[in-house]
């Protein structure tokens, strides 16, 4: 699986940004190095304000950076591009487009012919389980369905890497469990390279092949926890009894809590 050329490479990334009110420089990220290989799902956890969303915005190309490099498939990131798909925290699907039109939007932007577009859109609608909702508008969907729609939209553009920014943070607990299992299934089916930002330790341990723990601000890569459970075995009925899962989860939790207490003391 881990072929020798990584899909996403970040080297020595350091980032500062001016505070919105005082204008003082905030040190968000410090010397981040990471590599994502094909088909890998890597999650990032850390205390609030540790710069994990900043990292994602930089990788998405929405935030310009100066120090260090970040590249996808060997191409250095300068602004947004279709080689990286982003699933946003809030529902970022366009309210005036139907589900099908939203999912096909990326292809429409790249001027893919309609017949091919419709075929691919249907494929991903089926994959995320939105069959029958093609012509509904986002306001007619539940929170979980909106996030499915976002995932399908991102996958439909066939990006090299999929970046996910706390995608299940705003849905209710029941739906979240289902969506996590769904994402596991989708990752298995599509074999996508995924970077998954979350504040939930359980979620990170459940989904990730590797989990990166960030320190409190400035965000540094503190620890990497490997979670060697085959994707087929990952579902919530099994996982709670899985020794590897429990060990990994507790390890990550301890590591994050240490950082939170440091952040509080400051």
């Amino acid at each position: 699986m881990n072929s020798m050329t990584p899909k996403l490479v970040v080297e020595g990334l350091t980032h500062y940004y001016p505070d919105e009110y005082t204008g003082e420089s905030v040190h968000a990220l410090e010397d981040i190095n990471l590599e994502l290989y094909e088909g890998e799902l890597v999650s990032v956890v850390g205390p609030s304000g540790c710069g994990k969303s900043t990292l994602l915005n930089i990788l998405a190309g929405l935030l310009p950076y100066k120090i260090g490099t970040a590249s996808v498939d060997g191409n250095v990131i300068h602004g947004p591009g279709p080689d990286r798909g982003v699933v946003f925290q809030e529902h970022a699907i366009l309210p005036w487009r139907t589900v099908a039109k939203n999912i096909g939007h990326g292809l429409e932007i790249r001027k893919v012919p309609q017949a091919e577009r419709e075929k691919r859109v249907q494929e991903f609608i089926d994959l995320v389980g939105l069959t029958g909702f093609e012509d509904k508008f986002p306001h007619e969907l539940s929170g979980g369905m909106k996030q499915r729609c976002q995932v399908a939209r991102t996958l439909c553009s066939d990006p090299v890497v999929m970046l996910m920014d706390e995608p299940f943070a705003a849905v209710d607990a029941q739906t979240r469990i289902t969506l996590q299992e769904e994402l596991n299934r989708i990752a298995m089916a599509t074999h996508k390279t995924i970077l998954f930002i979350t504040h939930s330790v359980e979620e990170a341990a459940f989904l990730a092949d590797r989990c990166l723990v960030f320190s409190a601000r400035p965000g540094r890569l503190k620890e990497i926890v490997e979670i060697g459970i085959p994707r087929e075995q990952r579902n919530w009925t099994n996982m709670n009894d899985n020794a590897i899962f429990i060990a990994a989860r507790d390890r990550i939790l301890a590591s994050v809590r240490e950082e939170v207490s440091i952040a509080v003391e400051e």
Binding site: L62, P80, P82, R84, G85, V86, F88, E108, I109, S157
Partner: peptide, 24 residues
């Protein structure tokens, strides 16, 4: 976030205007 979503899909300024700003 709507503009950002379109940008990450590689939309040009014109496409953002046509697909996001105008309908929005």
């Amino acid at each position: 976030r709507y503009v950002n979503a379109a940008r990450t899909m590689g939309a040009s300024k014109y496409q953002i205007m046509k697909d996001v700003l105008f309908p929005g």
